[in-house]
Design a protein around this nucleic acid. Structure first.
Lengths: 224, 224
DNA sequence: CATTTGATCAATCAATTCATTGAATGTAGT
DNA sequence: ACTACATTCAATGAATTGATTGATCAAATG
């Protein structure tokens, strides 16, 4: 039987693929992975960010490691996890794309009429680059402080979404504000825009977010 | 606490994504999905193709259906399953890409010792461009077919590394071969060069790889 | 060298997943 | 209505996974 060996090899390969899929088949691990993707983090930090116990986080991280989604190294007392090699971000992107598709499909069926203007118009990368050149806008980074510190758009102001309402005075009244966060699946920036507009501040958001900006090789600042 | 709702929404979304991942986190379901992707098939046919009992196949198919990976309709006595809407193929592509990447990476570790002094001299981009102009070389792309299809160097021949030894005859004997793959981290091309030289074929490799070529804005071909 | 802190390990229990069985649908042909 | 056939359903037990606990290990600190 000629196909026998072929078959077996195929099953073998599918098993490997399935293993990968199962490794990201947990909301907890996806959350960890998302945080790891922002930069090296200790287990403790990741546990805190993802609201889980340290032991639990550790075990999930080890599963991710077994599947090559993350790597780790020891630095003093801490073990730091970082994102692994290979097209991992692409995979996560494909997953979220499909999830979003399914979501909007369901929405299309369920609340066809009720879809208000939550289609906030976004700013394209091209426009943003242009507006950056003549500094005619205030770039607002609404991500948490640590993410901001490890990299952000040049000239951006950091006010985490949680603190936004209390720190509106820090924003110039005359400039348009362009808010951004982590990208398409992150709703910090659109929410921020809603808050700002409710206060009469002209605001739009940059839907690509920081990761894609960085991925495109555009200039970034760190620390500040 | 302002972030509470934020968090909850994110967890909700991750759960949805995780559910998708779990749905394809089984070799059996991947196999079914692969066959469904070729066209409408009955449960019986799919069970046969995937070497599983009908009841079992039926249940797996229903899981895939719940996750929107497939749809079904009844035609006479048979229930026909077809692939669902949305970027499903893209997701499967991303999964297999990553699986393949991990495969070659493992090989890189295993074979590392065995090819320590692989100081194979590489071809620079400048030289390659020049040799391309007078067509005095055969450009060999040893990446998997799908990667090749989505973009490759102009005039390149595609023989995935796995198939190289069986398809040596497709290479012209008189031209020097210049192999490339994904770049510095990828060992497909250097390995290919070793294989070719062992067969007496003059070969060097282009260490930059396709991604860097593309990034430099140089001409590429697609599909072929 | 003992202590503290971060991380992992080992053991446990509850929950979930999986393949298998046999029974129950639903559909078409006679 | 009876029968054959394709598919699904429901129930079972084995295997796997998940979160929790406390013990253990490794590195830094006094």
């Amino acid at each position: 039987m000629a196909g026998m060996d072929q078959d077996h090899r195929q099953i073998q390969f599918f098993s490997e693929v399935a293993e990968l899929a199962r490794a990201v088949g947990s909301a907890q691990r996806l959350m960890l992975l998302q945080h790891v993707a922002q930069g090296e983090r200790s287990v403790e930090r990741l546990a805190e960010l993802s609201h889980m116990t340290i032991a639990n986080a550790s075990q999930h991280l080890q599963q991710l490691k077994r599947a090559n989604f993350v790597q780790s190294r020891r630095e003093g007392k801490n073990v730091l996890y970082r994102i692994g090699n290979g097209p991992i971000i692409e995979l996560l992107g494909a997953l979220t794309q499909l999830a979003e598709f399914n979501r909007t499909e369901i929405r299309a069926l369920v609340e066809d009429s009720f879809r208000q203007q939550d289609k906030l118009e976004g700013v394209s990368r091209e426009e943003l680059l242009e507006r950056l050149r003549d500094s005619s806008v205030t770039i607002l980074d609404v991500r948490p402080e640590d993410e901001f510190a490890s990299g952000h758009l040049p000239g951006a102001v950091n006010i985490p979404y949680e603190e936004l309402e209390g720190r509106l005075s820090e924003l110039p009244r005359d400039n348009e504000v362009i808010a951004y966060c982590r990208g398409s699946r992150c709703i910090l920036a659109p929410d921020a825009v809603t808050v700002l507009r409710a206060r009469g501040i002209q605001a739009r958001f940059f839907p690509d977010g920081f990761p894609s900006w960085k991925a495109a090789g555009l200039a970034i600042e760190t620390k500040h």
